[in-house]
Design a protein around this nucleic acid. Structure first.
Length: 328
DNA sequence: AAAATACTCAACCGCCCGTGA
DNA sequence: GTCACGGGCGGTTGAGTATTT
C-alpha cells in the first residue's frame, strides 16, 4: 500500500513560515471547536494549509501549554536518561513512556523541541566526548579496547576533585569526559560479554559465579569484580563510581585480557586462563570466597545483580554528582 | 566593518503504524 | 484480508541569527 497524500495536492497550499494572521485563525478555530480532524481543519478554519502543517504548527508552537526557552539542567538530564533507555527511538515516544516520563518531567516541551535540542546540543556534547550519541557507548574498536588502561588514565589531571586545575572549565570538561568514558566503557564491556561466543566453562571460579557463558578473560574480570564485592552490586552511582575509580579489579582482569590475541577473544577454548585463575587464585583476601568454596549465590542472582546494577545506574536519576559533572 | 562560518530551530517530507470500514 | 485514512516520528532543510576570522 502506498503512502496516502496527507493533503489535497490539487490545491496550491501554502508552505513555509506561518504569519501571525494564520496563527490567529488556527488558535481561534481550535479554541472554539477543538482540532477534530486535522485534514478537515484547514478548510473549516479558513486556512490555505495542509492539515499536517496545521497540526505541527499547533503542537509545536501554538499550543497554550507550550513551554519555551532554554532547557534546564534537569530537563537535559531527563532527556539523556530517556535516550539512554529508549535509544534513538526515544522520539517515537512509546505512549506509556511519553505519558509518564515526558509529560511528568518535561511538561510543555514538544517532541520536535526535544529532538532539536538533542541534535544541536547533547549530540554534539557526546561526540566531543568520544561517545556515540546513538548507543551511549564510547566510540572504540577492539584494538582501542585493548589499550583500555591507557585510555582510562589518559586524562592528564586524574580525578577531578584532586586536580589543581579544577576551576578550569575546559580541563574540567576533558576530565569529566574521561570519567564518563570510563563508565560507558564498563557498560560496553558488560554488553560485549553478554554477546560474545559461548565458551565452555574452563574455570570453576567464574563458572560458579555465574559467568561461565562468557569468554574467559571476561569471566575473570567479572569473577574478580564479584569477589571484591561479594554479593553486592553498587547500589548507588556513587558506589559505582567509587568502584570504577579504584578500578583495581577491572585492571586485574584487563591485564589478562590484554594478553590475548583477537582470536583468543573470540574463541579461547584452549586457553589456560581458567587454569591460571584457579591455580594462582590471586584474588584479594578481603572476601570470604575462595577457590575451594562454592559461592552460595545462585548464578541467576549474579546475572541479575550485574544487570540490575547497570539498569539502576542508567535509571538513577538521583545521581547529582554524575549529572552535574556531565552537564558542566 | 565585512565576509565567512557556525549555530539554532521552525517547518517540511517521507515513511510507518494503528484503526476502522 | 485489504484498503483508505489519520496521525505520529525520524530525518532533513533552510532562513535567520550569532560568532569568528
Amino acid at each position: 500500500m502506498g503512502r496516502s497524500p496527507c493533503c489535497d495536492e490539487s490545491r496550491s497550499l501554502k508552505k513555509g513560515p506561518w504569519t501571525p494572521e494564520e496563527d490567529q485563525k488556527l488558535v481561534d478555530y481550535i479554541g472554539r471547536h477543538g482540532h477534530g480532524s486535522w485534514n478537515a481543519l484547514p478548510k473549516l478554519a479558513g486556512l490555505n494549509r495542509c492539515g499536517k502543517s496545521c497540526r505541527l504548527r499547533w503542537t509545536n508552537y501554538l499550543r497554550p501549554d507550550i513551554r519555551r526557552g532554554r532547557f534546564s539542567e534537569e530537563e537535559e538530564r531527563i532527556i539523556i536518561n530517556l535516550h539512554s533507555v529508549l535509544g534513538n527511538k526515544y522520539f517515537s515516544f512509546n505512549m506509556h513512556i511519553y505519558s509518564i516520563e515526558i509529560i511528568y518531567h518535561l511538561p510543555g516541551r514538544t517532541d520536535n523541541e526535544i529532538k532539536n535540542f538533542w541534535n544541536t546540543h547533547i549530540r554534539k556534547k557526546f561526540l566531543q566526548m568520544g561517545i556515540d550519541p546513538i548507543t551511549h557507548k564510547p566510540r572504540v574498536d577492539l584494538s582501542q579496547f585493548l589499550n583500555l588502561p591507557q585510555t582510562l588514565y589518559s586524562s592528564p589531571f586524574g580525578n577531578l576533585s584532586t586536580s589543581p586545575f579544577g576551576n578550569n572549565n575546559a580541563l574540567k570538561l576533558q576530565t569529566d569526559a574521561t570519567q564518563l568514558a570510563r563508565i560507558e566503557l564498563l557498560q560496553n564491556l558488560l554488553e560485549l560479554m553478554n554477546t560474545s561466543a559461548v565458551i565452555p566453562n574452563v574455570g570453576n571460579y567464574s563458572g560458579a559465579l555465574g559467568f561461565d557463558n562468557l569468554n574467559q578473560p571476561f569471566q575473570n574480570v567479572m569473577a574478580q569484580a564479584t569477589l571484591q564485592n561479594p554479593g553486592s552490586s553498587p547500589q548507588t552511582t556513587g558506589e559505582l563510581e567509587a568502584q570504577i575509580n579504584s578500578l583495581s579489579w577491572f585492571e586485574a582482569g584487563l591485564e589478562q585480557f590484554e594478553g590475548l590475541s583477537d582470536h583468543d577473544v573470540i574463541s579461547n577454548e584452549n586457553s589456560s586462563y581458567g587454569h591460571n585463575i584457579q591455580q594462582e587464585c590471586k584474588l584479594p583476601p578481603m572476601v570470604n570466597a575462595s577457590c575451594d568454596e562454592t559461592p552460595s549465590l545462585s548464578q541467576t542472582d549474579h546475572h541479575f545483580a550485574a544487570y540490575e546494577a547497570w539498569e539502576k545506574f542508567i535509571d538513577d536519576e538521583t545521581s547529582d554528582s554524575y549529572w552535574k559533572k556531565f552537564l558542566e
